[in-house]
């Protein structure tokens, strides 16, 4: 029998697009992780510097507005939080693949297929594009 960790591992999801961040964060929560959301690298650093918060994995987009992108954040983490695992994903399919791998290794059985998360994000982004056109 596989031993499960007593407390769920904490993943910090860093993504500036809320319609991508929300479904991925929710998926990882449904897989049993404690998930913290950050909208950019500045917020991520604030969380990582907070003394009461232990982050095991940082799951970050690469292109982000602000002083630091995903590569800059990864460099900061290697210097200041060297024990923290970093997962960088620059596209939605890569993010989904990375989330799927984390879910399969996670504390709970997989709640639904990662493809459903991908379909959901595509639907959300397509609805946004449709709304954008309607407003023009």
């Amino acid at each position: 029998m596989t031993e499960k960790p007593e407390a769920p591992e904490t993943i910090l999801v860093v993504e500036d697009d809320v319609l991508i961040r929300m479904p991925i964060a929710q998926y990882l929560r449904d897989c049993g992780y404690r998930v913290i959301e950050a909208v950019n690298a500045d917020e991520a650093v604030t969380v990582l510097l907070h003394r009461d918060t232990v982050v095991d994995i940082v799951f970050s987009d690469i292109e982000m507005p602000g002083a630091m992108d995903g590569f800059g954040l990864a460099k900061w983490i290697r210097e200041h939080r060297p024990g923290t695992e970093i997962v960088l994903a620059g596209t939605v399919p890569r993010s989904i693949d990375a989330a799927k791998e984390l879910c399969e290794a996670g504390p709970l059985p997989k709640p639904y297929e990662a493809q459903a998360v991908h379909d959901n994000i595509r639907r959300l982004l397509s609805a946004r594009r449709g709304a954008g056109k309607a407003r023009q």
Partner: peptide, 12 residues
């Protein structure tokens, strides 16, 4: 663009 039949989708 439906999900796979019978699966719980995140939105649901």
């Amino acid at each position: 663009m439906g999900g796979v039949r019978g699966e719980l989708r995140p939105a649901d």
